[in-house]
């Protein structure tokens, strides 16, 4: 039990990540409304981004912007003083790509609504069968 508590205190960000992945995935499977499904997809995306960012975090470290004076290009920079910038770079582009995919997903939802007059999955299926 003590082990579990210590595990929680050092790794609670992964617990949040797991909870968000489960929420998003469950919504993508179970929700019948297409906009709700898109919201679930976005929650799943942000959960993965949270995972990457929390891998890059460092205790007692500075933001990944190097402190330097003018003309002192030679002074030593220690990597341990700065937060790992690599996950930030990858996730920064992932966020902007996620809004672009969100746009395409919403465009598809609007197209489906124009065709069938509803966003509910079961009603769309009924209309396809009756047509």
């Amino acid at each position: 039990m003590e082990d579990l508590a210590a595990n929680f205190l050092t790794k609670y960000n992964y617990w949040a990540f797991i909870a968000l992945v489960m929420i998003g995935f469950y919504a993508m499977i179970v929700k019948r409304n297409l906009v709700k499904k898109i919201v679930g997809m976005n929650i799943l995306q942000t959960a993965v981004i949270l995972f990457y960012v929390s891998i890059g975090a460092k205790r007692d470290a500075d933001l990944p912007i190097i402190a330097h004076g003018h003309g002192s290009a030679s002074h030593a920079v220690h990597a341990a003083d700065y937060i790992n910038p690599l996950p930030h770079v990858l996730m920064l582009t992932a966020i902007v790509v996620s809004v672009a995919t969100l746009g395409v997903a919403i465009a598809l939802a609007i197209k489906i609504y124009r065709q069938y007059g509803t966003l509910e999955e079961d009603e769309i299926g009924e209309r396809i069968r009756n047509a």
């Binding site: 790794k11 891998i55 460092k58 205790r59 470290a61 341990a80 690599l86």
Partner: peptide, 11 residues
């Protein structure tokens, strides 16, 4: 790795 571990493999 634990949260904020400076020795995490990714870093």
């Amino acid at each position: 790795p634990a949260w904020g571990d400076p020795q995490a493999p990714a870093a």
